[in-house]
Simulated scan of single mutants.
Amino acid sequence: MSETVHRDARIPEAMAGQRFDQVAAEIFADFSRERLKGWIKSGDLTLDGARAKPKDKIYGGEQLVLTAVVEDELRFEPQAIDLDIVHEDAAVLVINKPGGLVVHPAAGNPDGTLLNAVLHHCPALASVPRAGIVHRLDKDTTGLMVVAKTLAAQTQLVEQLQARSVSREYDAIVTGVVTSGGRIEAPIGRHPKDRKRQAVTASGKPAVTHYRVTERFRNHTHVRCKLETGRTHQIRVHMAHQRFPLIGDSLYGGRLKLPPGADDDLKDLLRGFPRQALHARKLAFIHPESGQRLEFRAALPDDMLMLLDYLRDDHETMR
């Protein structure tokens, strides 16, 4: 099966100076960069009504028009992988993702992903770009994600993400004692020396994270983070930038710091915590068909609950 899509959008003035393919990837984020680049080269994606090259410079205010045929995602194999489905209807699927599950196939993870799982659960998603996935969670981050079951629903949800009207809130357990909540506004882009990492950099894209304190311990804090933007590794990068890295974060956590006088059980737990202590706890959006605002919550997973219990016991014992 295949489907013809038609999209048009005006490029914001703030994107002036970027490449055509970079701008297209941000505006039409539900399609892969490679697919968009191919449509630019074929003339299916035009700039002010004319063909252009992927590397052409954008001045801001131009009109993008996309008319292209979307082929089925048949190269991805449906696989019977258990899903924790929080909500499902004809337009959307809300999933509570476990830790260790990659969202989309890529180098090093060709299958066994959330995408393979949703294709098995709903074969019709083969005709929707990226099998309906509109946003991602890191492999080791747990919690709520929404998947669109139709192309129209995907388009609508992507527009909500771009308009920053999708509400996403996370639980995080960080190293250090956070004294109060705040707002982090710091651009995020690729790390200049390590392509696996992101970093706060002047050349990065705008990124805003709001956070508040839920519970303080002797050397750690349970915080709630709310995303205003959705950059790769945003909470992990922003909290590390504030010198409050997430427990268990192998990329951004830095040197392990153990509470002085802590018992061996807590020390072992902190040394061996297998992932970044991050959980997508709340997700809210406007249903793409009914127009109703939906809100979902997912309880903390067992590993984070246990970590909080140990930190709480240590805090009480050492008072």
Rank of each mutant, 00 (worst) to 15 (best):
H104T: 04
L311C: 02
T229H: 04
A207H: 00
S250D: 13
G253W: 04
A153R: 10
L125E: 01
F28E: 09
V65N: 15
A280M: 01
C225E: 11
S180M: 12
F76E: 10
H191S: 09
R293Y: 04
G272V: 02
Q18F: 10
D313T: 12
R271E: 07
L151V: 11
T221N: 13
A9W: 12
L137I: 03
V70F: 13
G181M: 07
V128H: 08
D194N: 14
K193L: 15
E71F: 08
A29M: 08
K205T: 15
V118I: 08
L157H: 11
L157W: 05
A107R: 13
K97N: 00
E73I: 05
G181E: 06
A299S: 14
L115T: 10
V223L: 15
D72F: 05
L307N: 00
D84W: 01
K257C: 15
L157E: 11
E13Q: 15
A131W: 02
P206V: 03
P123W: 02
L119D: 05
R190Y: 08
L266A: 07
K257M: 15
K193D: 14
Q18S: 11
G38R: 06
L270M: 02
P259A: 14
Q242W: 13
Y211W: 04
A117M: 01
H6T: 14
E88D: 01
I40S: 09
T221A: 11
S127K: 15
D89I: 01
R319V: 09
L283F: 03
H220Q: 11
V5M: 00
L246P: 08
R231T: 13
P129N: 05
T142P: 03
Q198V: 02
A240L: 01
H241P: 01
F296R: 09
D48Q: 01
E62S: 08
L45I: 04
A126C: 15
T141A: 06
R297S: 13
P105E: 07
A124I: 02
A298Q: 04
E185Y: 01
H87W: 14
P301G: 06
P301T: 08
A126T: 10
E316T: 09
P123R: 10
A299Q: 10
T155H: 14
K193Q: 15
T179F: 03
Y252K: 04
I188V: 12
Y211E: 09
G204F: 00
P288M: 04
V86S: 07
D44W: 08
G100M: 04
I40C: 07
M239H: 04
P129A: 06
L246C: 07
R19M: 11
R297Q: 14
M145E: 05
R224Y: 03
V223T: 09
L258C: 03
R243K: 14
T67F: 10
L36A: 06
Q79M: 07
V5S: 03
L114K: 10
A14G: 02
M15H: 06
E316M: 15
G189F: 04
R190P: 01
P274H: 00
V213N: 07
D309K: 03
R212C: 03
L258G: 06
